[in-house]
Amino acid sequence: MKINNAEINAVNKLPSNVRYEYFIKKVTDYEEVWGLFNDGWATSRGEDGSLFIPFFPKKEFAEINAEKEWASYEARSITLDDFIESWLTGMKKDGINPSIFPLGNETAAVSIDNLLKNLETELENY
């Protein structure tokens, strides 16, 4: 289900912690997470050099972020089950952090353990 420009604009104005809550609700509603892909998944580095992979709640938000160094990337979905069971486990093992719903330099910094807990809590509502 596509979202309209009014919703995109409204959500993009929210602070990162509220966008994080939106992310949790949307990915559990639609059972998919979105990233950016081009011969590999988009990544960024934190100020301390740590590696992050950005994730988005809907295709439209991922597409908006396909700019600058990610201009050649396209939005690609990951099933929520695969995200929980494979991605987050592998990322934790490899020391890669999730960057949830980044906008510019602003992102929700959350540990994989907390992200998993929040997703599982939200999934209990279904």
Rank of each mutant, 00 (worst) to 15 (best):
K92P: 09
W87A: 14
N65D: 06
G95K: 08
S77E: 13
W87Q: 14
E106D: 15
P102H: 03
A71G: 00
E67I: 04
P102G: 02
I84L: 15
G95Y: 07
A75R: 03
A66K: 01
G104M: 13
K68H: 08
L103S: 04
S72Q: 07
A66T: 01
W87R: 13
A75M: 06
F83R: 08
S111Y: 13
N97C: 13
N97M: 13
I78T: 09
E106W: 09
S99H: 09
N105L: 09
A62F: 02
N97V: 05
E67Q: 02
R76E: 11
L88C: 11
W87L: 15
K59N: 01
A71V: 02
T79C: 03
D81K: 10
T107P: 13
V110E: 03
S99C: 14
I78V: 14
A109F: 14
P102A: 02
A66C: 04
S86P: 06
E74G: 13
E85P: 08
G90D: 12
W87S: 14
N97D: 07
K59M: 02
I78L: 15
F101I: 10
I84C: 06
K93N: 11
E63M: 09
I100M: 05
E106I: 15
A109T: 10
T89F: 15
A108K: 12
L103Q: 08
S99N: 13
K59G: 00
F61N: 00
P102K: 03
W70A: 02
I96C: 10
A108F: 11
I112L: 05
S86A: 12
F101E: 07
D81T: 07
A71S: 03
G104I: 11
S99P: 13
D82N: 12
F61R: 00
